[in-house]
Amino acid sequence: MTDLFANPAIQSCVLPFILALCMAAAVGVSKASTARYAGLAVALSFLVAYGITFGLPPFPANTSGQKIAYIAALAAVLGLSIEHWRTRFARQFALALGLVCVATVWIGWRKLAAAPTNDHLFALSIIAGAALALFATLRPPKDANDPAVALLVVCLSFAVLAFLGASASIAQNAAALGAALGGVLILNWPRRRVGLSASARLVPVVILAALAAQTVFFTKVPAWALALLLPAFFADRLAFRWLPADGLRSALVRPMILVLSASLLVTPALAAAWYVSSSSALEGGY
């Protein structure tokens, strides 16, 4: 059993996927009044996967990796709050961006406390990128699943970038986030079963921004490669613009087209990162 949970594929793919699926189904399908909390299954599943992979972080957190767990927990509390008080878009956006600012500065503190360097520019870029991602995923969508599907593709692409940048732990965290999101989304495919509320989109973006900060400050992944992922957050809007609406109406085909669109949009980021690193530092074992 211990060996099973030591397997990275179980830790960061299978486990968060199944956990999120079960939690979202339990909360979202059974009772209409609690359905809006279903998205929080993403944060909780991510935290469980984190605990199994890295153990419980000490308090106060010491390393950037340990801080990720606390930021995810704070994001979950924020998600719970906005669902409980039914906060509107502008306030959701402001609160989430505030948390992203805190997370970025906290994670990069050891570098940002020094005299102004490129790291300060990176911090501003991360916050600006998160603002764009939050705008794309939080704005009232025609279908709440659409931005979440794009977000899923971004999470998995982020995992590949981190893997190329020689950090398996960040790759596993991003993959776990994507898998948890996938666990909730699969409930709505091909038939809608749970309503995806704002927290289901807000929480992953905040965690992803924290992972971006850790990646930019402490790994070899170039910041511009992460920036190339940003257009994928708008995959749904672009798909609507360029593809016939008929194809997007079907609940079966719509997510597939969105996955394809988002995948095309992340291709430049993956290609660039692959070109820079030539091959993954983690490839093949050693």
Binding site: G165, A166, S169, F218
Partner: peptide
Amino acid sequence: HAKRDAHLSSPDFFNTAEF
């Protein structure tokens, strides 16, 4: 081994950019 060094230097292990 350059690739292993890159991995050991990453946040997975010695986290040398941070420490």
